[in-house]
Computed example of a mutant assay.
Amino acid sequence: MTRQTHNDRYDVVIVGGGPAGLNAALMLGRARRSVLVVDNDQPRNAPATHTHGFLTRDGTPPAHLLATGRDEVTRYGGHITTGLAQSATKDDDGFTVALDTGRTVRARRLLVTTGITDDLPDIPGLRARWGHDVLHCPYCHGWEVRDQPIGVLATSPHSVRQALLFRQWTDQLTLLLHTNPHPTPQEAEQLAARQITVVTGQVTELDTTDDHLTGVHLDTGDLVPLRALAIAPRAVPRARLLTTLGLEPTPHPSGAHIDTDPTGLTPIPGVWAAGNLTNPAATVLLSAASGSTAAGAINADLVAEDTRDAVRGMNDPFTATTEARLCEQTMGDRRHGL
């Protein structure tokens, strides 16, 4: 049964109002838990015009998806507030979360879904195209640039694999070595077999016309015509709140992430994490699913605690007598029509 909010006390405080956080809030609201979602309105996919690969929601603008999610959460009694969670402290009774608005809230359990920041290569013109024709996920945006000239900017040891993946969407693919070393003989053979052009030289600037990417300039003076550029940004966890609890991100091939068990439970008892914070490669759909998984685990954990409290109360003579008297009084009131 839901514990009603009193003096900013909630069963669960969720920090981060993206797909993971909102889906968790929806599930917990339906489980009759009191929930607060704290969000600073800076979603990772804000530059993108549409969300793809989400069954029944394919093509939905990200802002519309979040607005619909907020409406659904509040429909089940969830609360949403705008702000930045600056710190969290743990005690025997749960967690205290301090917001930049000056508000302090209490939570029995804490779920962090603050996501990641994409650390992009420092190339003039690149950030302005991010989420439009500069992209990283072929499953999210590959269909929209299919059969067009696509470049893959080599910035990591996995760039050849990324190029081989993007080859699925076009036969006009160029691997821009940029600052990466030349492919190994085995990689060169794979690229040649898939007819992927390899270009040496460092990318110095993006070329655009009428708000569309038209190519990239190299330090050799050459211009490589392109209509889309794929990159592999470094994932930087938005883990400030977790670090105040003593939990640091773990290095990951694409940057860093927060380690959890399969339900999203972190090494800190009572603290869960979900979404891109735990899996930088997760799509919107996978992030939402991880929020749902965490919500189920959190509710089960609260049920176990509620049961322990009820058993202790039943075995406490004073508590049991008081509850019996209240029950007797209630039954008497009902008999007298009160």
Rank of each mutant, 00 (worst) to 15 (best):
R3S: 09
Q4G: 10
H6T: 07
R9C: 10
Y10H: 08
V12F: 08
V13L: 14
G17M: 12
P19C: 08
G21Q: 05
L26E: 05
M27I: 15
L28P: 09
V35E: 02
L36W: 06
V38G: 01
A46D: 03
H50W: 02
T56S: 07
G59L: 02
A63V: 14
R70E: 06
D71N: 15
V73Y: 00
G78T: 02
G83K: 07
L84F: 13
A85Q: 02
T89K: 14
D92L: 06
D92A: 15
F95I: 11
R103T: 15
R108K: 10
L111W: 07
D119V: 14
D119I: 14
L120G: 03
L120H: 10
L120T: 06
G125N: 02
V134K: 00
L135M: 07
C137R: 08
P138K: 12
C140Y: 10
H141G: 00
P149A: 13
S156L: 03
P157F: 13
L164T: 13
L165A: 12
R167A: 00
D171A: 04
T174R: 01
L176D: 01
L177T: 13
P181Q: 15
H182D: 15
E187S: 07
A188K: 03
E189H: 15
Q190P: 03
A192N: 06
A192H: 12
V199N: 00
D210V: 08
T214E: 04
V216W: 07
H217K: 09
L218Y: 05
T220M: 10
V224R: 10
P225Y: 14
R238M: 04
L245A: 08
G246C: 07
P249L: 05
T250Y: 11
H252I: 11
G255R: 08
D261V: 10
D261Q: 03
P262T: 14
G270Q: 02
W272K: 00
L277T: 01
A281E: 05
V284H: 12
T293V: 13
A295P: 03
A297E: 02
I298L: 07
L302S: 01
L302W: 09
V303H: 04
R312K: 04
N315K: 07
D316A: 08
F318N: 09
T319H: 09
T319P: 00
A324M: 14
R325Y: 08
L326T: 13
